[in-house]
Design a protein around this nucleic acid. Structure first.
Length: 286
DNA sequence: GGCAAAACCGCATTACCCCG
DNA sequence: CGGGGTAATGCGGTTTTGCC
């Protein structure tokens, strides 16, 4: 944080303080833990004084308190810096000056966004979890999470329904909890212990099922023994057929409500046990 | 990778002072 | 006056920061 004094006051303050200290510039600077050149630059009003340092001075010499009224504003550090990049491009300044056209060309032909690419590879290599989270947050911003329920935004009505059902039945769950499977990161819609719940009603069932199958395999290898796919009545049969497997169950949100709300519900274990039964016993809807 | 602006800092030069 | 030592100053390079 920097403070802006009215013209001349910063110089006055520094000189005044120096008198009070009774030290040389160098000594005073080291007392304030800044470089002597910096202190001089401040005296010459070349740069803005750190608010932190101003406080330090006032603390040492309360008679400097009066200068506070001369502060006409506070600014964040590096407050006025004009960024390069796009604005520079607009103004054809700096790197974007026409005289650098040749260099621009070579820069672009050498990969152009090499820096950004490096950043991505480095982040992936060094902080994969953080990287994925950042990417995910970016994605979340671009996607629309328009269904709000209990301080959590959901992506679609199906997810919302599931969240409601769980909440009504006092079942704790985690929404889009990031898990790592085989070096990759996934964000299953819902996780309850080692059970994963995915919501989908994407009309291209074949394609979605392929994706899901791949995910489910990864989940299974990382100890998530069961995956529940929640869809709508219309697609239930198709998804069910395409995702046959010992650890996968396809249900609708109504099914879920029935299990949890009805007689079959007797705790988490019961949920898990009743699922396969439900899925196979029932005649698929047409 | 790039740029621009702010902040910071090293160092050579200059100013100052003391003293024989 | 001039040598020698230290503090102050001027110059300009470097680092930091934020954005493309």
């Amino acid at each position: 944080m920097r403070c802006i004094f009215t013209k001349g006051k910063q110089k006055e303050l520094i000189l005044f303080a120096r008198d009070l200290y009774g030290l040389s510039w160098r000594e005073m600077a080291s007392k304030l833990r800044i470089g002597s050149s910096t202190l001089r630059d401040w005296r010459d009003e070349k740069y803005l004084v750190h608010y932190r340092i101003f406080c330090k001075i006032v603390k040492a010499f309360p008679q400097c308190e009066g200068f506070r009224t001369s502060i006409i504003g506070l600014k964040e550090d590096n407050w006025g810096r004009q960024p390069g990049g796009f604005r520079t491009k607009q103004n054809s300044r700096g790197f974007f000056d026409p005289k650098y056209a040749q260099q621009q060309h070579s820069w672009k032909s050498n990969g152009g966004r090499v820096g950004l690419r490096n950043w991505h590879t480095q982040m992936k290599a060094n902080k994969p979890g953080k990287y994925h989270q950042m990417q995910q947050e970016k994605l979340k911003k671009s996607l629309q999470y328009k269904y709000k329920y209990h301080n959590q935004k959901y992506r679609n009505i199906l997810e919302l329904n599931v969240a409601e059902i769980f909440t009504e039945n006092d079942i704790r769950f985690e929404y889009e909890h990031m898990i790592k499977c085989e070096g990759k990161f996934y964000l299953p819609d819902f996780t309850l212990d080692n059970v994963i719940l995915e919501c989908t009603y994407w009309h291209d069932v074949e394609q979605r099922a392929r994706e899901l199958r791949q995910k489910i395999e990864a989940y299974a290898k990382s100890g998530f023994s069961k995956t529940i796919v929640v869809t709508i009545q219309k697609y239930k049969h198709e998804y069910s057929r395409l995702l046959q497997g010992s650890n996968t169950v396809v249900i609708t949100s109504e099914d879920l409500r029935e299990i949890l709300g009805g007689r079959t519900w007797a705790g988490r274990e019961s949920l898990l046990n009743s699922l396969p039964k439900l899925s196979t016993d029932r005649a698929p809807a047409s």
